[in-house]
Design a binder for these strands. Structure first.
Lengths: 95, 95
DNA sequence: TAATTATTTAGACAAATATCTAAATTTTAC
DNA sequence: GTAAAATTTAGATATTTGTCTAAATAATTA
């Protein structure tokens, strides 16, 4: 879970995830969308990969990145548990 | 959204949130649960407050912290949009 | 096989972060 | 009103992080 939160805690990386929703892209195509050098984007992709949020497949000279949302299920479950474990208003300490 | 991800990107802070699910606690009670100094916990509580995840009410000498999960709705919506915007397998690029 | 292209790795550096100790603030109790 | 208790603020420091440039690796093309 730590790697996941770490990966999500950066606007560039979240934008990359949003980009990949529309379809797979290779590293160069991703870098082209950002005002940032390729090594920097490469590093962000690495962190996303470590978190399991993206997968990479080498196709010849290119490396294609694709989204993997199954990791988000764990986070989703954690978040939803907050909705359900909260005590109902009637049980809350009255003012 | 940035503050929210930042706040969640720390195991101590996530543990504090989990603690508060069982009921409100004051700063000292929270600090007692961790192997960390009070100023450090105070700082974590500050970041959680900045993200809107907790609220604090001063009661005499004590400051009571309570969970506010409404901020998580935004994150929940973002996460769920990943489940729905993913293309169905049939539309994915065939091998 | 030499040059070009796509991507990553390595190393440097500034900025952000987590933690600590010491001091300040505020409230309560004698 | 002084002392004690709860909490925060201030300031220091080590670690982590995001970014860059330069170099390395691997695949393609001429």
């Amino acid at each position: 879970m730590n790697n996941l939160f770490k990966a999500l805690n950066d606007p560039t990386r979240r934008e990359i995830l949003d980009l990949l929703r529309e379809g797979d892209l290779n590293a160069g195509e991703i870098a082209d969308r950002f005002n940032m050098t390729k090594p920097s984007i490469s590093h962000h992709l690495d962190l996303l990969r470590q978190a399991g949020l993206v997968e990479s497949v080498k196709q010849g000279q290119f490396i294609t990145y694709s989204l993997n949302t199954t990791v988000l299920d764990e986070l989703l479950a954690w978040l939803m548990s907050f909705q359900t474990t909260e005590k109902p208003a009637s049980e809350k300490t009255p003012k």
